[in-house]
């Protein structure tokens, strides 16, 4: 028996909105320590890694691990039925072929439950190591969203170069080119500050399209962490307050040999 109660159904709604455009189906792996999700997009360029810790839930009950394969598109649709302040309860029996979502309004005067059929999804689990990155950039998530939006007018590939002075996002296309540089801020509140921690200067190329997809997670967190090392995927991480995090890995574009 698995049961988890989340005070803000809204959070899951936001998570789904940010990932359901990248992957269609995914397994929610539920274990005693929490819920995790790993999924790649169809072209295998990005990996989504979602961790929701058990202590972030109001109540969490999972005596044996199970994975719930769900169509994220259907799930996103169902979560649209939840009110913004609703409380969500997730329920699944052992060996079940469905999972139940219960939404309760804050005043407890409206309760709805939806049952979704589970899918059998063949998904490989990947080991993700917490590696030491050459450059770690923290910035307001809305700022990253704006940069992606602005630069995607010009071209498809973004070059991110970081050094101690700041981070430069550059794009060039058939019609011209553009650069946006972000410098570290020293004042203001910590949540919206920009910080750049660079061990040595680094330059990497990425498909802008995917970065733009990632920024759909902006409503989840006011700030975003971008970690880069040479020749390996960039990690774009959104913290979900008191619950866990949602991170996206994006494989770089490398020049041939």
């Amino acid at each position: 028996m698995f049961e988890a109660r989340l005070l803000k159904a809204n959070l899951l709604k936001k998570i789904l909105e940010s990932i359901s455009t990248l992957v269609e189906t995914a397994n929610f792996d539920c274990s005693p320590s929490g819920i995790s999700l790993q999924a790649m997009d169809a072209s295998h360029v990005t990996l989504i890694n979602l961790i929701l810790r058990n202590d972030g839930f109001e109540s969490y009950n999972c005596d044996r691990s199970l994975s719930l394969g769900l169509s994220l598109v259907s799930l996103a649709k169902i979560l649209k039925c939840a009110g913004n302040d609703d409380v969500l309860t997730l329920k699944a029996r052992d060996e079940a072929d469905t999972v139940t979502f219960v939404f309760e309004s804050p005043k407890n005067d409206r309760i709805s439950d939806f049952e979704i059929k589970l899918l059998e999804i063949k998904n490989e689990q990947y080991g993700i190591r917490d590696s030491d990155h050459t450059a770690v950039i923290k910035m307001p998530s809305a700022e990253l969203q704006r940069i992606c939006r602005d630069l995607s007018i010009i071209g498809e590939i973004v070059t991110i170069s970081a050094d101690k002075q700041g981070v430069k996002f550059s794009v060039s296309g058939d019609s011209g080119s553009g650069n946006i540089t972000v410098r570290p801020t020293s004042d203001g509140d910590a949540e919206l500050a920009t910080s750049v921690d660079v061990k040595e200067p680094i330059v990497l190329n990425f498909a802008l399209k995917f970065l733009t997809h990632f920024t759909k997670a902006t409503p989840l967190s006011p700030s975003v962490k971008i970690s880069m090392s040479d020749g390996v995927p960039v990690v774009v991480e959104y913290k979900i307050e008191d619950l866990g995090y949602l991170s996206f890995f994006l494989a770089p574009k490398l020049s041939d040999e």
């Binding site: 590939i157 890995f249 994006l250 494989a251 770089p252 490398l254």
Partner: peptide, 11 residues
């Protein structure tokens, strides 16, 4: 530049 595949980075 060649787009690399994400699965080549993970085991």
């Amino acid at each position: 530049a060649v787009q690399t595949r994400i699965d080549s980075f993970f085991t």
